[in-house]
Simulated assay, not measured.
Amino acid sequence: MTIHSLSTKRVSRSAESHVAAQDWRGIVSDLNAHGCAVMPGLLSAEECADLASLYPHEEHFRSHVVMARHGFGKGEYRYFKYPLPDLIDGLRTALYPRLATVANDWNEKMGVAQRYPPDHAAFLKRCHDEGQTKPTPLLLQYGPGDFNCLHQDLYGALAFPLQVAILLSEPGEDFTGGEFVLTEQRPRMQSRAEVVPLKRGDAVIFAVHNRPVQGTKGYYRVNLRHGVSRLRSGRRHTVGIIFHDAK
């Protein structure tokens, strides 16, 4: 076992306590109102450094994507392979039940038949039954001039409607620029953009594809995309926690 695996395993034991300590009433309120919510201080500086240090070590990952080769922007990312690092796996497991409640409420409001089971293992079984067996949590790395185009992380027929990004680097110290950006397209209206300020260790929960919005005649669905603005200087690492697996 590498030193990186040991370090990640050591901090993973507190994943559930990290998640439970958040203000979930406020988080759900922000998700319903804005399509995104911040979890401040989800990870410590030490935990962030441990995760970012995994990036050069290929044994933790199943694939490496250079964004410019695919028209995704500039920068790069690696998808973790199974078994996931304990901290990533623990956060994925602990976050899912709380977000499944929101996801089921959203689908009911939007008239979508899909419902999500209360625990992540049961949801992953559904993914695997659909042939979606590849893990989707990823570690992203940006340098000066890098950015991520607006996009949606769907990966297959079965997709969970919320995901989480955790900033592992400190704005103003490790990098400048590189803000998380979310856009929302409402019917017959121009797109609305929201820049989400984050500090190292903060996480943002956001809608992957659609969310419900209350209108005068009931709820309607809006379409969302997310990305990262151009990095001005330094280096930025982020962990993305996606709850569905890919084909």
Rank of each mutant, 00 (worst) to 15 (best):
H64I: 12
M1S: 00
R192F: 09
G26Q: 05
E58W: 00
T93L: 07
F175S: 04
G234N: 09
G215D: 02
D174M: 04
A103Y: 09
M39K: 04
V66Y: 12
A165M: 09
R62T: 06
G35P: 08
I166C: 05
S14Q: 13
L31N: 11
Y77H: 08
F123M: 06
Y142V: 13
V38Y: 00
S5A: 13
P161Q: 09
A49G: 14
F61S: 02
Q185W: 06
L43H: 01
V11I: 13
D86Q: 08
P197I: 12
C127Q: 01
V11E: 09
L182T: 04
R115L: 01
V222S: 05
M189E: 14
Q22T: 07
L87M: 09
Y155G: 06
D129W: 06
A159Q: 12
S17K: 14
L95W: 04
H237R: 11
Y96N: 02
H57I: 11
V112D: 01
H64C: 07
T238L: 14
Q114T: 11
G172F: 06
K199H: 13
R235V: 15
M1D: 05
Q214K: 15
V66N: 14
E130Q: 14
E76H: 06
E194G: 11
L224S: 13
D105Y: 04
G75I: 10
L139E: 00
N148R: 04
Y82G: 00
N223C: 05
I242D: 07
E173S: 11
C149R: 01
G73L: 11
K125R: 10
G178S: 06
A21K: 12
Q152S: 08
S53L: 06
H60W: 06
G215Q: 07
R232K: 12
E16R: 14
F72P: 07
N210Q: 15
Y55K: 00
N104R: 03
A246E: 10
A45D: 13
R98V: 03
A157E: 15
P212F: 02
F147K: 10
A20T: 10
L154G: 04
R186L: 10
G201V: 08
L224R: 12
R235A: 15
G145S: 11
P56G: 10
D245P: 08
G73Y: 00
L84D: 03
A103D: 02
D50E: 00
K199W: 05
Q163A: 04
V222K: 01
V195F: 02
A33K: 14
G75H: 07
R188H: 10
R186K: 11
S14K: 15
R62V: 11
R126L: 14
F72Y: 14
K217T: 09
K247I: 07
D30E: 15
S229F: 05
L162H: 06
R25Y: 12
P118R: 09
E130H: 15
F160G: 04
K217N: 11
A20L: 10
Y82D: 15
A157H: 10
V228Q: 00
G145F: 10
S233G: 04
Q190L: 03
L158G: 09
H70L: 05
A45M: 06
I3A: 11
E58D: 15
K74R: 15
R236P: 02
E179P: 03
G131Y: 02
